[in-house]
């Protein structure tokens, strides 16, 4: 269900404010409270931003895929608005993931980029998202259908991308011995706090984008009504 008009009105300031507070708190905690990682030492601190964005990137992609599917099925414009908003937010989050990842990779592996499973998948996913936004902007009248089709195809392609480069995982891990689920203590708290912070930003961005698309449409419809009534020229 796309957020109703009144919901977008309060979502933007509330989640924007929560995100702003969270961002300050997160940065402060990351540099003062969280201990150094046992293996990667100081450079591991970028992890809270990197993975925090990556989690929300996948949420955004999921929202975009599902609402595109619902749009093709039901043809309700609100699903299309939501898909567009999610895709644009996903492009921004994906750019953050790739850039912070690249910076971290330079520090941890001494390479800006390695052709490794998760990097490859994120990059291809991001390419599909950029293509989506390009189509929305330049495909004219049939942009909504085309972009929805692209989103659905891209989502179906994800598992194939994942199997494509399955050559052993050398992605840097958050803890010394495993993944996000094994984090403990301050690391765990700050990690989930940063995920929540960027999720608040995500909600605020999506709500404001949906509201602006809806505003554009209403303006267009009013203008058409005005033209029909002979009030505008």
């Amino acid at each position: 269900m796309a957020v109703p008009r009144s919901a977008t009105d309060w979502m933007v300031p509330v989640f924007g404010l929560l995100g702003a507070i969270g961002l300050v708190v997160c940065i402060w905690l990351i540099f003062t409270w969280v201990p150094n990682d046992a293996v990667l030492f100081f450079n591991q601190r970028i992890f809270y931003f990197h993975v925090g964005h990556a989690f929300n990137l996948f949420i955004a992609v999921g929202v975009c895929g599902v609402s595109s599917l619902l749009f093709l099925w039901r043809r309700t414009p609100r699903w299309d608005d939501l898909a567009l908003a999610a895709a644009e937010v996903a492009v921004a989050y994906g750019a953050v993931v790739l850039v912070t990842g690249s910076v971290w990779a330079k520090a941890a592996w001494d390479h800006w980029w390695v052709w490794e499973n998760r990097l490859m998948m994120s990059l291809l996913l991001w390419l599909v998202l950029v293509a989506y936004v390009l189509v929305r902007r330049y495909a004219g009248a049939s942009a909504d259908r085309l972009a929805a089709g692209l989103a659905v195809f891209g989502t179906v392609g994800l598992p194939f991308i994942y199997t494509m480069v399955n050559k052993g995982d050398q992605h840097p891990q958050a803890g010394t011995n495993g993944n996000v689920a094994t984090l403990t203590g301050p690391m765990q708290i700050v990690f989930w706090l940063s995920v929540a912070t960027f999720f608040c930003w995500f909600l605020a961005l999506i709500a404001s984008r949906v509201a602006s698309t809806r505003g554009e449409r209403e303006l267009r419809e009013l203008r058409e009504q005005g033209l029909d009534a002979g009030l505008l020229t």
Partner: peptide, 16 residues
């Protein structure tokens, strides 16, 4: 737009 749309989707096919 045709290559812009289909190439990202076709990359797995190409890689396989």
């Amino acid at each position: 737009l045709l290559p812009v749309i289909i190439y990202p989707i076709l990359i797995p096919l190409f890689a396989f």
